Amino acid sequence: MDEHHDVHTGLHSEHGGQPGEHPGRARNPVIKVADLAWLEFEKPDLAKAERFAHAFGFVTALRTTGELHLRGSDPTAPCVVIRHGPRERFLGPAFRAAEATDLRRLATATGREVTRPPDTIGGRMVELPDPSGLRVRVVADPHPLSALPAQPAHTFNFGHDPHRINATQRPPREPATVQRLGHLVLQSTSHRQTLDWYLEYLGMIVSDFLYFPGQRERGPTMSFIRCDRGGEPADHHTLALTLGPSNRYVHSAYQVADLDALAAGGQYLREHGYRHSWGIGRHIQGSQIFDYWRDPGGFMVEHFSDGDLFDNTLEPGWAPMSASGLSQWGPAVTQDFLGMRPGRESLRELRSVLTALREDNEFNLNRLLGLLKVARS
């Protein structure tokens, strides 16, 4: 039956799991994080990174010889912290604790200490590795940032209920205004172990599971997980984890006001010579309108708008993974987005496949065949 599953129907099932399958949440998590706080990168050229950031829609919150903080218009911590270093690399995410007292609870459970981030950020934090070795920080009380002017919302004449009379619609072709950091996607060779770690220690819960076609009995291979804020709705996914031949950053996503902001901002990026990856379209899991770009270092970043919000009552949906199932509408998914574009990225991933198949992890030959089937679908 799964082989003929139509990914464009039943986009989310409140009770999609079968007996014995992963429940999508831990029974008694150590803490429950409230959101992503920021992402940290290392780059050799901060000036080039800042130029792209401004074209993408960030505002510089701090710039020193060794550090660059990029923010959106929302009154939160910086979305991105970039440190000067010898090469392009993702350093890890920081999550915001729901309560400052959660840091002590997390430190005790993991044998870590509560420490202080750099003075440029402030607050307190616990730093620990996830099962893939990625550095994860959980933070509380960083230096506050005041709100910036938001991109004005448009007035639409949709259907038979017009609101714009004797006025035109002329969205300027300018950078979209990033509002906030939305989510992070990571690839891991140990999907189940990494997923369980985030559920157990950070209290996150699964919104949707995907599995390789014909391999549901082997368990999920992608998990879209959200913060558990009880009755307060949270983004469909704050973190997404996917099984693959290497442990790596896949992409991060930043919210903008609406489709016009996303499209006009994309046109601005295109005119300034930046590399488009995929879009514009609308996702299935999460429902976001999306548009993907590559920064000068090759990292994939996403503009998104109009995403789903779930409270903690919704159980995980289950669906087979497919390339065509990545969007409800939009252009066909690109080789660049799938990591198959000829070049350094695809060669690096091929080498990772050969390495992973020789090691003891979840990415075995059956999983490779499943992944190839996804890419052809």
Rank of each mutant, 00 (worst) to 15 (best):
E3F: 14
G17M: 11
R27E: 11
V33Y: 00
L39A: 08
D45A: 13
A47R: 11
A49W: 05
T60M: 00
D74H: 14
G85C: 04
P86I: 08
R89Y: 01
F90Y: 15
A97H: 02
A97Q: 00
A109N: 02
G111M: 06
G111A: 03
T120C: 13
I121C: 04
R124A: 12
V126N: 00
G133D: 09
V136N: 05
R137S: 09
Q151H: 15
F156D: 09
I165E: 01
N166F: 15
T168F: 11
T168W: 06
P171V: 06
G182Y: 00
V185L: 03
R192P: 00
W197A: 01
P220H: 15
P220Q: 13
H237E: 14
L239Q: 04
L239N: 05
G244I: 00
S252A: 15
Y254W: 04
A263F: 09
G265T: 07
L269S: 07
Y274M: 04
G281F: 13
I284S: 09
G286D: 07
S287H: 11
I289V: 14
Y292G: 01
D295E: 15
F304W: 03
M321Y: 08
G330H: 03
V333W: 01
L338Q: 10
M340A: 02
A356R: 06
E359L: 07
D360W: 01
S377L: 09
